[in-house]
Write a protein that binds this DNA or RNA. Structure first.
Lengths: 233, 233, 233, 233
DNA sequence: GATGAATGAGACTTCATTCAT
DNA sequence: GATGAATGAAGTCTCATTCAT
């Protein structure tokens, strides 16, 4: 529907995903509006990507739109054709990247499975949709800048976190009724499910150079600790 | 009680600072050096405290030294008498707050106890020395600003984290020899011990207003999940 | 009625411009050049009208060509097809609006009448051709922007003011020979004839909301003061 | 009382009035705060004067604070120590220059004299306090920028114009009771008293180079026209 | 040592103007 | 001719840092 949805649906935020062959603008015969619009969207994407790079590297306050523009291959003023100001660029960046997560979560919410299976699903989802993508960087940004952007934290909580938590709790409630071990505890604190994921994100950006961290192994160990050793995905 | 409380109550940021008679230069009828030095140290503390407030509230880049000065009750120029520049103030702030932790960790490192007891000790240490103090804010700052201040992350890793990890691994190694469940896993990923603590810190600063989080209960639940239900401190 | 009314009613800014059926441009088999030219002229008029609106509302420097274009219903680039740059647009606007005045003045210059009659004619001319039209706004613009646009002031002086003054002085000279009271004084300072008109223009744009001003009554009062009470048009 | 009052009371805005030998800041023995404050006030004045120069020459929108700073002999940032932003500088400039006028007007408002005498007083006041000073430029600024700064026009109307008008009307009312010719007319339109003054201000800034205007003679002629020839001040 | 006024580099943002379509 | 996306120069404003007092 919205531009954002498009951005995400095509997984353009995945690390090295060429995805659809983004049309170049310089062609004689094409219908103008279509080409124009496509070129515009490509530019918008380029700016968002560049912004994510710069914001991630320097933080919101210290990032310079000059650098964003240069990295995106556009002039400084061009940014303002697509975003009202620096803050709008930031917020739209977050929304564009995280928005699609919601549908994914909801899709996975339905089935009724043992706690461990569910935990493994969530861990897999985390690794695939967050840790392996630039969403990892966006979550870092939210953590770092959230206190200064209450709206951002609110968006992330209401649109992403709370939905994830509600979905998880619903499934855990049924497992708790079945007296599955850990289900009741996790229902009260579903945050515990993804806590190691957070650690992984932060560790990788802060301490990777001192001591690399094998995220998959970490997550497996986490599952083992909670549910006893067993085979994971 | 602990070293840390002293830091907060007495506004002493430095680990082992015996006053240090900072000699002044240009003064005709100077008072006793001791008094002077004490006054200087008090000022230094005031600035550090104010800086922590401002950096926490606005982030490093957006925090204004003007506000730090006002909050500390000194003139803007005074800050430069105690710190080379804004960045130095920031780094010294981190060091001053976290420095004392190290000794604490080392003190607790010696004894040989069951994994669960050790985990409970660490959790208690975390709650008492970090979550209940301003160190929580400092950890947030490291997380938020670390990528921009490699030295900071390095300091935190080498001076705090790695020591804690080494100590924990040493104790876990012995538990692993005893085949205690979970010991081996935690030895490989000691981060899992404190992951919920991190979640608590970030949650409190980002989402507290939407959904409060009972940290003690969270940590107990975490222990229960890892080691089975039991009474905690 | 007068040439000027036509300008306003028919949106013709240029002295002798016939009609013009607005035709669209993008068509392969273009119509007669005449139509083309007429369409172009209409566009030019639209731009000039929009420019007057915007310049009047915001001043030359603060007016945005974006707004002019939007108000004129054309693209921003189109403005540059008709005017070299913003300043040229401004100057041509002034000329287009004031140009026709000249002939009017010259027409009225010939007859030899008593001073009071002549003064009444001038006052009537002012009310009808300036105050009741957008020329009022243009005069405001000249007053406001004149110092920054010497050419503008020069144009207004040489093309409008000086001619008006010369014509008035010629008639006043003859009245002065007849010893008509005030004639000699007004000959030296014909500005006094229209001074209240200026006040009216400025007052209406600045203070109308505080205290409305009846321009006709003001002008009549002015005449009464100069020549003694009497009936005016 | 206020800074502004000081500014005006000392007539620092007069063209070439050395006035009080403004203390220089570089002196060893003086009490600090006093000197500081004096230096600050001097700077403020310098900025206001420079701003008046630049705003007069270029208009509010086109004037560059860079130029104001350079002309005032201060750094760009210094302006912001004294004024919130460009607009505040502009508004405070207007207020500082016009504020003192009020008291002058009120002082002259009391006595009961013939209309002509009163008119002569007003003309003299205009020439002395406005035309011979930089207030002339400020009035030009209000005329040029007023429409964009409603507060400005409001200030000028309520603080200056309306008071002047009320005072004049009060005196004219008594003259009207005495059946003095012109009194009743001027009571209805006191603007007519100063209309030529306005013309003079505008003429001097727009057309002086083409045809100089002897303001005093103009004002005398104006009085003659209204009250018949006679000796003026 | 302490102050805080002053500085000026640098960032964000606007908008006249251009030019490929 | 017409369009409007793109450009980048230029202006406002902030704030870390300096330095005379």
């Amino acid at each position: 529907m919205t531009d954002q949805s498009v951005i995400i649906r095509n997984s353009q935020w995945r690390a090295a995903t060429p995805a659809k062959p983004r049309r170049v603008s310089r062609q004689k015969n094409a219908r103008r509006p279509a080409v124009r619009a496509a070129a515009g969207e490509a530019r918008r994407q380029a700016i968002l990507t560049a912004a994510l790079d710069e914001f991630s590297a320097a933080g919101f306050a210290a990032a310079r739109l000059d650098d964003v523009a240069r990295r995106a291959g556009v002039a400084k003023g061009t940014i303002y054709l697509y975003f009202r100001d620096k803050e709008a660029l930031f917020q739209e960046l977050i929304r564009a990247v995280l928005g699609p997560l919601i549908t994914q979560f909801e899709a996975a919410a339905g089935r009724d499975v043992p706690v461990r299976v569910m935990a493994e699903e969530i861990v897999a989802l985390f690794e695939r949709e967050i840790y392996a993508t630039r969403r990892k960087d966006v979550i870092r940004l939210i953590i770092a800048e959230g206190p200064r952007f209450p709206k951002l934290a609110a968006f992330y909580y209401t649109e992403v976190l709370s939905k994830l938590i509600v979905a998880a709790r619903a499934r855990l409630a049924r497992a708790a009724e079945r007296r599955e071990p850990g289900a009741e505890t996790l229902m009260r604190f579903p945050q515990l499910l993804v806590a190691p994921g957070l650690v992984a994100i932060l560790w990788s950006s802060l301490f990777e150079r001192f001591e690399p961290l094998d995220v998959s192994a970490l997550m497996r160990a986490h599952l083992d600790l909670m549910f006893g050793a067993g085979r994971n995905t």
